[in-house]
């Protein structure tokens, strides 16, 4: 379901305002604001809409600082899976789940041959994350500062609604913690301890996964995404979730 449609639905959150409060709310004249901002105000979640007319925000108009992003140079991926191994080791991912994985597709090429394309996938840390919108216990949210979609396992009741809502299949239920687990750009394991990059990015021998701060004009992700004559794509743009994982072939 598109996030646009989802946001129009009535929230079933327990924090929904009682009618007396709602009347006060209306009397205060905030109804106009409500109509303008629609579900964003009523949803009671920390969804922030990126100021982006296109897939990549305009320079200087990034909603977060640092605005963490990963640029995937897709054609260089050779499925050696060092990224997966590093992620498993760094973040204690069990064998039945994944925080990041490699997808594969085949494409016909000239002279009757086929070529293989490997596609690394992970949480897209969307600017309008459907998973955050549907969580009934606010166990997952978008970090105010970095824009990372984080989890609080203690607050998760294991309803798995977020897993259904995620357009990218980036979440799995971790039996060990009885909570949903997902990629947090190695925030817990690395970034919060002063490391500058994710485990997968560091492990990649082909320089496929470029991680960095899009709001820093000197960063590689900024240079890659704002280079002239570059084709940039994201996965499933039609969901309107405004993902932060970009794909290029340079």
């Amino acid at each position: 379901m598109r996030i646009d449609d989802l946001e129009k639905l009535k929230s079933e959150n327990l924090e929904t305002l009682p009618s007396a409060e709602r009347r006060n709310f209306l009397r205060l004249g905030l109804a106009v604001t409500g109509v303008y901002l629609g579900g964003t105000v009523l949803s009671l979640t920390s969804v922030r809409t990126a100021e982006a007319a296109d897939l990549v925000p305009e320079p200087g108009k990034y909603p977060y600082s640092p605005h963490y992003t990963m640029v995937i140079r897709e054609k260089l991926c050779i499925d050696c899976e060092r990224c997966k191994d590093a992620c498993v080791k760094t973040n204690g991912v069990p064998v039945y789940g994944f925080r990041t994985t490699i997808l594969e597709r085949r494409r016909a090429i000239a002279n009757g041959g086929h070529e293989t394309i490997f596609m690394p996938v992970l949480c897209n840390h969307c600017n309008r994350p459907p998973c955050v919108r549907v969580c009934p216990t606010t166990a997952t949210w978008k970090d105010e500062k970095t824009g990372i979609v984080v989890m609080n396992p203690a607050r998760c009741i294991g309803c798995k609604t977020c897993m259904t809502a995620c357009p990218y299949n980036a979440r799995y239920f971790k039996e060990e913690t009885r909570a949903v687990d997902k990629c947090d750009f190695c925030w817990e394991s690395r970034l919060s301890k002063g490391e500058k990059t994710t485990a997968c990015s560091e492990a990649c021998p082909a320089d496929v996964r470029v991680f960095g701060d899009l709001s820093d004009p000197k960063s590689r992700v900024y240079e890659l995404l704002h280079a002239p004559e570059t084709v940039i794509w994201v996965l499933r743009p039609e969901t309107g979730a405004l993902p932060n994982i970009y794909y290029v072939n340079v």
């Binding site: 991926c77 050779i78 499925d79 050696c80 899976e81 490699i102 070529e115 293989t116 490997f118």
Partner: peptide, 12 residues
Amino acid sequence: KRCTACHIGVRG
């Protein structure tokens, strides 16, 4: 060029 012609990866 054409990395995946020989690099079949873990899946391959």
